[in-house]
């Protein structure tokens, strides 16, 4: 028995080592993927979505469905080669995009109503601003003071609209790499801390289980002893 225990003592460190090395070696080598994620954002009047399995493998040809917050189906689309899919915004409520990839993989992303309202507000105002900005061309402004007085209350706010539209446009452009970065950071692969934590949990559970089975046994032994003493 003693010899067998010694053997076990020799084996167990190897098993631990194996469990330790397994995730580390494979973590860096293969471009593997597991769960699926979807990330959606609003640009102008369009919702863009990006779907992928973890570690950057794109989810090609997967079904993307657009729901409202009550779960009514609004639109449906399929992801392209890059795992992207886009929709025109159908209504100004909170929306939910649901991705269904193969083999029971599924993910969803909620777009809050504020995000849509914010872009929609600037959208609806822009055509108005466009029309009036023609009137505020320099030739119009060079009229008499009386003429100029009326539109002047306009120009300040109208130019504001124009500026807002321009800022929106350039912000969309400038932010797109950041949005992409955010989309990338959405799928975090389990790191070494999660792996170690899980293994720790399992060994902890083993300890608890052993404690209880041992306690049961020692109680039985004690009961027998006290019976003998009586």
């Amino acid at each position: 028995m003693f010899k067998k225990n010694q053997n076990l003592c020799k084996v167990i460190p190897f098993l631990y080592l194996f469990l330790l090395i397994l995730p580390i070696t494979f973590h860096t080598t293969a471009a593997f993927a597991h769960k699926v994620t979807i990330f959606a954002w609003v640009e102008g009047d369009t919702i863009y979505t990006q779907s992928k399995f973890s570690k950057g493998r794109k989810a090609k040809g997967s079904l993307v469905t657009l729901f409202d917050m009550e779960g009514n189906k609004l639109l449906e689309g399929t992801t392209n080669e890059k795992g992207e899919c886009s929709f025109k915004i159908p209504q100004k409520t909170g929306l939910k995009v649901v991705l269904k990839a193969s083999m029971g993989h599924m993910a969803e992303w909620k777009i809050p109503v504020e995000e849509i309202a914010a872009t929609q507000a600037s959208q609806t105002k822009t055509p108005e601003a466009g029309v009036i900005s023609d009137i505020i061309s320099p030739s119009n402004l060079s009229g008499s003071e009386a003429d100029a007085k009326q539109p002047i209350s306009g120009p300040a706010s109208l130019q504001k609209e124009e500026i807002r539209r321009l800022i929106d446009e350039s912000l969309d452009q400038k932010l797109s790499p950041i949005i992409n970065m955010l989309a990338d950071s959405q799928d975090q692969d389990p790191g070494i801390s999660e792996v170690m934590g899980g293994i720790g949990y399992i060994f902890g559970l083993v300890g608890v289980a052993l404690y209880f089975t041992n306690r049961r046994k020692t109680q039985e032994v004690r009961g027998q002893r006290s019976e003998v003493e009586k």
Binding site: L22, F26, F32, H34, F53, A59, A101, H105, G198, I199
Partner: peptide, 13 residues
């Protein structure tokens, strides 16, 4: 731990 060892196959993993 085994679930972290992936084999990339086709569209899924």
């Amino acid at each position: 731990v085994a679930s972290l060892v992936h084999v990339p196959v086709g569209p899924a993993s």
